[in-house]
Amino acid sequence: MTRVISTMHRLVELGLSGMAIAYERQLNQPDLQQQTFDVRLGLMMDAEVSERETRKVERLVKGARLRESQAVLEDVDYRASRGLDRSLLMSLTECEWLRRRQNLILTGATGTGKTWLACAFGNQACRLGFTTCYRTANQLFEDILLSQADSTLPKLRRQLIKTQLLIIDDLGIGGITAQLGPLLLEIIDQQSRNGSLLITSQYPQDKWYDLFADPTIADAILDRVIHKSHALQLKGESMRKMRGKKS
């Protein structure tokens, strides 16, 4: 027994908690103890890999700060009134667009589930090992302007441009000022070389140009965003109202 406890402690001290749990499981299952050393070691190594992958995903999800942290693509509501193209959504679920550094745009009226779906894609990205960052457009723009004022913009810029999936939720509220435009352009230009954008907006894409105070900046940003984007438009009655009717 002392030897068993010592082995367990050693595994934990070495940071092999997955192997320690698997080792204890083997001790409690006589049929596993009858397996060869190679088989038992293999099972322990598999458990360690699984444990590390789980911890990594948990870290990525926590770091993403998703508003709807429990949203997952398996729970998407495909009712006909929402107008979702199921085959397109299923293909986007594989996240090949992320690997190719393409973008995803979700549009629709307020309450149609854009934020929830964006967070579901954020969770999927974390599962696949992509670093993810969620911000509402207002939060992001405020962070950029405040960091410029207190001279921390370089730090924020590095954080944003190294993110493999940057989610900008609810683009359009308040518009994009002449002061903000060049700063946002620099971030989007550099981030697009490293990863992808997921943008939600209640404004259709053909109205985005009018959100910018500076038309030159608008051209530059939209050229980088729209031309390599997949688009989904959500329709139907407000999901919030529908949930309220059920309660």
Score class of each variant (00 low, 15 high):
Phe141Ala: 07
Arg67Val: 05
Arg55Gly: 01
Lys241Gln: 11
Ala218Tyr: 08
Met242Leu: 15
Ile221Ala: 02
Arg3Gly: 07
Ile167Pro: 00
Ile173Cys: 07
Ile5Asp: 11
Asp219Ser: 09
Ile221Pro: 03
Glu53Ile: 14
Val39Tyr: 01
Arg10Gln: 15
Ser6Cys: 09
Thr110Tyr: 03
Thr2Leu: 12
Leu117Asp: 00
Ser6Asp: 15
Gln102Phe: 06
Ser17Gly: 14
Leu166Ala: 10
Leu145Cys: 08
Thr216His: 06
Ser91Cys: 14
Ser91Asn: 15
Cys119Phe: 12
Leu145Pro: 04
Leu171Gln: 10
Gln33Pro: 04
Glu68Asn: 14
Glu96Ala: 14
Ala120Gly: 05
Gln190Met: 11
Glu13Ser: 15
Gln190Pro: 09
Gly181Ala: 15
Ser50Ala: 13
Arg52Thr: 05
Val49Ser: 11
Leu232Tyr: 03
Lys62Arg: 13
Arg240Tyr: 03
Asp206Trp: 05
Leu232Gly: 06
Glu186Lys: 14
Pro204Ser: 03
Asn123Arg: 09
Thr200Phe: 06
Asp169Glu: 10
Ser238Ile: 02
Gln102Pro: 09
Gln159Asn: 06
Lys241Asp: 11
Thr163Met: 05
Thr115Ile: 06
Phe121Asp: 01
Ile5Gly: 02
Asn123Ser: 08
Ala47His: 00
Ala137Val: 08
Ala71Glu: 01
Trp97Pro: 10
Ala220His: 02
Lys155Asn: 10
Arg243Gln: 13
Ala149Val: 09
Ile226Lys: 01
Ile176Glu: 04
Asn28Pro: 05
Ser229Thr: 10
Ile188Met: 07
Arg40Ser: 00
Glu74Gly: 06
Gly113Pro: 07
Ile173Lys: 14
Arg135Lys: 09
Val4Arg: 03
Thr107Ile: 10
Ser17Cys: 13
Ser196Asn: 07
Leu234Cys: 04
Asp170Asn: 15
Thr112Ser: 02
Thr107Phe: 03
Thr112Val: 12
Gly42Pro: 10
Leu165Ala: 04
Arg240Pro: 03
Asp170Pro: 13
Thr2Val: 15
Gly129Ser: 05
Gln233Ala: 15
Ile199Phe: 10
Leu60Glu: 03
Gln148Pro: 06
Asp143Val: 09
Arg193His: 13
Arg224Thr: 12
Leu166Val: 07
Met44Thr: 06
Ile217His: 09
Asp206Ser: 09
Ser229Pro: 11
Met1Arg: 05
Arg25Asp: 11
Phe212Asn: 04
Pro204Thr: 04
Glu13Met: 11
Ile173Gly: 03
Gln139Pro: 05
Ala178Pro: 08
His230Asn: 14
Arg101His: 12
